[in-house]
Design a binder for these strands. Structure first.
Lengths: 216, 216
DNA sequence: GTCTATATTTCGATAGAC
DNA sequence: GTCTATCGAAATATAGAC
């Protein structure tokens, strides 16, 4: 019983670590598989193989395939929202939008799988995260539209439609993740180098910032 | 035998029409189902139900699910290529790129399912149309990059990176199809009106044309 | 907490009567 | 050319020994 008690104590602490680590590994594998095969094309077996675990263990940590998917999409959404911070507290559109493009491009480079899972989810009608679209994203969008409109009213940038400017920022930056395979194919099948990523960033920023009248 | 011969003649003509019509119905249903569920998530049963045909009939016209999918993607690719004509024979960037944006936005509105199927295919590594990317798309892209560079050399537009300008055009215009559900959700759950589509088009054209220095 | 074996369901595809 | 019935494969999910 002493032995049991001790084993129990040790096991309890260990279990937390094991759980955390296994969940991390499973989520990383799931993100990649969901991105490459879509929700329907992904199989628990593929995810298990990539995570290096038996398929049954996935069901031990995540009851269903949909639960696992839901967690992956949720994590990506959080990253997206954090990126939005670059937009805030900027003195003007040149700094705010420039920083936002930088942040979004960095996410496209560092989290290409997550971006694809998000894109796929939205493209299929957002069956899992529709409530996020209607609440959090909606509020964030309205807030940024107001901020951009303020800049316009203060004469800090050209009078463009703030909503469509936002869509353009999203579309353009995420393109390098979601259509990364196409970009790579058109780059002789090679991934973009550091230099090419800088060139992409600069090109996007130059055209957009000049497009809203804050560059000559 | 006379009777048989006559029936045979009539049947032969009818068969062609029936085949054409059934293929049309099946392809339309498949485009929608593939767009909404992805290749993996789509089932022959769903497509058959939407087409109003027994599942076995789909296999009569298209041997496998992949054959059907391949035809859908191919048709979309053709539409994309035709849209590129707007780019050509333009006296300058203002007309050429303006017309290209118009054409691409119209496709996003009229063929949202096709655009999504294409996006999904590329996002998943283009398992079916990789050869198109490496040949036709590659050649088209190189040609347009050269055309844009010529405009730059002639001083008709600001010196931007032509390749990234193209990516921006693709990303921005296709966003209204691929992320149409998100756009709609942020539009109070309603589809864009004629007026809103015009507004979107004008916004995109204004920012990009000013961004490349052909608008004040 | 792990993992093998398996139950259950669903899907792609086909056979064969009409 | 149509359509019911069904096969065989594959996937999700679970049972139960360790």
């Amino acid at each position: 019983m002493n032995e049991n008690a001790q084993v129990s104590r040790i096991t309890k602490a260990k279990r937390t670590d094991i759980r955390r680590e296994n969940e991390r590994v499973i989520l990383a594998a799931a993100e990649k598989v969901f991105a490459e095969a879509g929700f329907g094309g992904a199989t628990m077996q593929l995810i298990a193989d990539m995570a290096g675990l038996p398929k049954a263990n996935l069901h031990y940590y995540f009851a269903t395939k949909e639960d696992l998917y839901r967690k992956v999409v949720h994590d990506i959404f959080e990253i997206w929202l954090r990126a939005a911070d670059s937009f805030d507290n900027a003195p003007g559109p040149k700094e705010g939008i420039g920083a936002y493009v930088d942040a979004k491009m960095d996410i496209s480079r560092r989290h290409p799988f997550g971006s694809k899972v998000w894109a796929s989810e939205v493209m299929h009608g957002a069956p899992v995260i529709q409530d996020y679209l209607e609440t959090t994203l909606r509020e964030w969008t309205d807030g940024r539209i107001a901020a951009i409109q303020r800049w316009i009213d203060e004469g800090k940038m050209a009078p463009v439609n703030p909503r469509h400017l936002l869509y353009m920022l999203w579309a353009t930056t995420q393109h390098y993740a979601d259509f990364g395979h196409q970009v790579e194919t058109l780059n002789d099948g090679r991934a973009l180098t550091d230099r090419q990523w800088r060139e992409a960033k600069d090109s996007v920023k130059t055209i957009i910032l000049r497009g809203i009248g804050v560059l000559s």
